[in-house]
Amino acid sequence: MPTTEPVYYSLTCYVNGERQTLRVRAANTLLHVLREDLGLTGCKPGCENGDCGACTILVNGLPIKSCLMLAVEAEGLQMTTIEGLRNSPVLSVFARKQAFQCGYCTPGFIVNCHGLLSAHPDANVETIRFWLESNICRCTSYEEIHEAVQAVFCAEERCKAVILRELRRGRYGRNPSYSENHTTDR
C-alpha cells in the first residue's frame, strides 16, 4: 500500500556549484525538483519515460535522465544543468552552428555532449554516436547537431587544450570548491 501522507526528506546537494538544502517528497523525480523547487527550467520534461533525453543533466559529471532519478537519491551529489554550462564551448558551438530548430531538446544535447567532452575528450566517431543516441530531436535537426558535435571534437589541438584545461578547472560549471559559501535553503 502507498503511504497516505506525503513523506518529505531533507536533501543537500550541489547544483551548478551551489549548495542546496531542500525538503522533497520521496516520490518526486529530480526533474521536477530542479524545475519547480530550484527554478532550473532548462532541463525539459519530454517523454518522462527515459527515451527522449530532453531532461538530461550531469550527476557527478555523468549524463543521466533526471526523469528517471528520484530527487532523494541525489543526496551529496554534484549536479550540473544547462544553466551551469553558460560558458561551455559546446553551447557556443551549438549556437554558432544553429544546431537546433524549436530548441526544446537542445539543453539535453548540450549537457550530454559536454559530459562526453569531459569524460572522453578524444572520443572517436563510434563513442560520439553511442553517447548522442541517448537524445532525440523531434524536429530532426540531426545534420546541424552532428556538425556542431564534430566541430567540438575536431577543434584544433591548441584550442582543445584550452577547453580541457578550463574543464578540469571547473570553468564550465563543475566547481565543488565554490559550493560551500553559496547556500540556498528552500
Binding site: 502507498p2 503511504t3 501522507e5 506525503p6 513523506v7 517528497r25 520521496a26 516520490a27 523525480t29 518522462e48
Partner: peptide, 10 residues
Amino acid sequence: MIPFDFEYYK
C-alpha cells in the same frame, strides 16, 4: 510525476 507517496530508505 509519480501520483502517490512512498517512503525511502538507503
